[in-house]
Amino acid sequence: MPHRVLHFTATALLLMATWLIWSGHYVFLINTYGVLSVIAVVALGVRLGVVDEEGQPFRLLPRMLLYLPWITWEIVKANWDVAKAIVSPGMPIHQRLVRVKASQKTDLGQVLYANSITITPGTVSLDVRDNTILVHALTQGSYEGLLTGEMDKKVAWLEGEG
């Protein structure tokens, strides 16, 4: 029960902060609209069952700050690779379908891994089941990068002790 109250409060505070940042008009009427909107959205979230630990993985935040620069650099490198494939006249693409292991323990960890694969251009996740992810790779380089399993280890580390 205290956990539910915590997530409930955290959601409401985050939504209210978002409202205040985007609004820019701090008068009573507009702020009242804000409070009413926050109540409506939290009620919808509770009805959908998303106001819980999985929806607010705050414990991942410290490691996420280290993971974000790493994934951004991976995205930049992958973009360069795919851009080269697009502009070269011979279009050197080599499509592959491969099932890779997802060693994360929780659903959230596997979702993070699948999304990390998809957001990196050159690899896109097609299907997630039985702790494996079916991946479509565009070039030889993206295929080999996937097989090293570096991203899998990074996301498992990010997930921590689930």
Binding site: V82, I86, M91, I119, P121, G122, L138
Partner: peptide, 26 residues
């Protein structure tokens, strides 16, 4: 623009999705 060219030039929907990722990310 490279992403746009890729979406136009690649042969099927799977390869085009990689090109679309270019425009969405970098």
């Amino acid at each position: 623009i490279i992403a746009g060219i890729g979406v136009l030039r690649f042969p099927d929907v799977y390869t085009r999705s990689h090109a679309a990722g270019l425009g969405d990310t970098l």
